[in-house]
Design a protein around this nucleic acid. Structure first.
Lengths: 243, 243
DNA sequence: GCCGAGAATGAATCCATCC
DNA sequence: AGGATGGATTCATTCTCGG
């Protein structure tokens, strides 16, 4: 299995997680932002191309669609259970799991986490500070991080807040790109020295944050364009071009 | 059906919601804070008395336990589906629903809301500011409001925030008592002139908030001690003794 | 009235014991 | 074996009280 990119702390594999994960082991933390398969109450809405259904202005439409975001509820449950189990198989006992999700798929992902063999231990909240206002109803201004552990929980001396407020990322390359400070907050429960795995790497924010915390990390991404984006971020860090 | 208490805006019934709700109609908003049946990963923890499992010192033990907080997952789903359906039967078309819940029962309540015939439309977050710390993991510093509508959603010109920050109530009579400002925030999506129903009234914070917004409200509570507490709050308001 | 120190509090959680 | 019980533990925030 040849990495698409590697340096002293980061390894990137280009491929489908279902192909790559069985070859990995020793993971101490799975931290990821999978495709939500959300974005609409109707099947037709979910099946639209990502840049059409989530983006309401033209300036952002150049960003490539990402794959795997068109599943209905039952397929999402089955698919998520499978990758969560595969990630757990690659993990050490007491490894931690953190997965982003939106409100609509939160219940399904909580089922999938448990179906995948993880113990679900809580919900953390990323408060984006601003959501699209909704006439007559509550705006959706948050995303959620469901977290758990592979069997018994081994605590270490950190007390990260359960709610973290931070605006959405600027200059996004990926439509769902998370700010690095948000990823550093989530990585706060990573055991010391653990290897971090992101099976849906996207533009590599998880790896970027892990690196800045001195953690080794592995990213897997099916879309080669994003592999290149993430690799380039790593190269610039190596060269000291990025803080 | 004789009210336990009534004045120009508030009516309180002492009894089980399953007995009282079939006699009600014309409800425009169901806003409530039901027993969560939460309190731990172990069945034994859930089965403990409320004041034992949620409270860890003696000075607060004077607050009476409340009933119905000891269901397991499957029973909670069945029970919640039934009261949600009963509340919906008492409601007008496009009535809104808001129910508090904690992280552990959020997925189950979202199922129950849909099983009870409501359309689930979102999650709002009460940010309590701080939670009991948890070594090595994220503290749970929030409770959630699942909201929806009885069929099509009829919007009106309000834009309430999806996240509301407010510390826990002081001088609580009920262990799960919500601050009045939190209830006023939740009531923000109530259609103008709607009658508000709280099938698990407790100490009556929902009614108190509704009254302060000029809304008519109906509360149902199975524990007569809390009926008296809520009625007394209403009487003091009538006398102008409470702001 | 202001400030600082100390105490109280939290819709918990985990685990060792005891039946 | 499995359910029930009791106790230790955590710290940010708020409250209380004295100076």
């Amino acid at each position: 299995m040849t990495p698409y990119y590697s340096d002293d702390l980061v390894t990137i594999y280009h491929g489908d997680s279902f192909d790559v994960l069985p070859n990995l082991s020793g993971i101490g933390a799975v931290v990821t932002d999978p495709p939500y398969s959300s974005g609409g109450a109707f099947r037709g809405d979910r099946a639209m191309a990502v840049t059409t259904k989530y983006v309401n202005n033209d300036t952002l439409a150049y960003r490539p669609d990402f794959a795997g975001d068109n599943r209905d509820q039952r397929s999402f449950l089955a698919w998520a259970s499978l990758w969560l189990n595969a990630a757990r198989q690659a993990s050490v006992p007491s490894a931690v799991l953190c997965s982003f999700i939106d409100w609509r798929q939160l219940p399904t992902l909580s089922d999938a986490i448990q179906a995948g063999g993880w113990t679900w231990r809580g919900v953390a909240i990323w408060d984006k500070g601003y959501g699209r206002p909704r006439e007559g109803g509550f705006s959706n201004a948050a995303e959620y991080v469901l977290w758990g552990s592979n069997g018994p929980f081994e605590s270490h001396e950190v007390y990260p807040p359960g709610i973290f407020r931070e605006g959405v990322a600027q200059d996004k390359v990926h439509i769902a790109q998370k700010p690095v400070d948000v990823m550093k907050w989530v990585l706060g429960i990573t055991p010391p020295g653990a290897i971090v795995l992101d099976p849906f790497m996207g533009s590599g924010s998880t790896l970027h944050a892990a690196k800045s915390l001195g953690l080794r990390s592995i990213g897997v991404e099916v879309d080669e364009r994003y592999c290149e984006v993430a690799a380039e971020r790593c190269r610039q860090e190596v060269l000291g071009l990025v803080a």
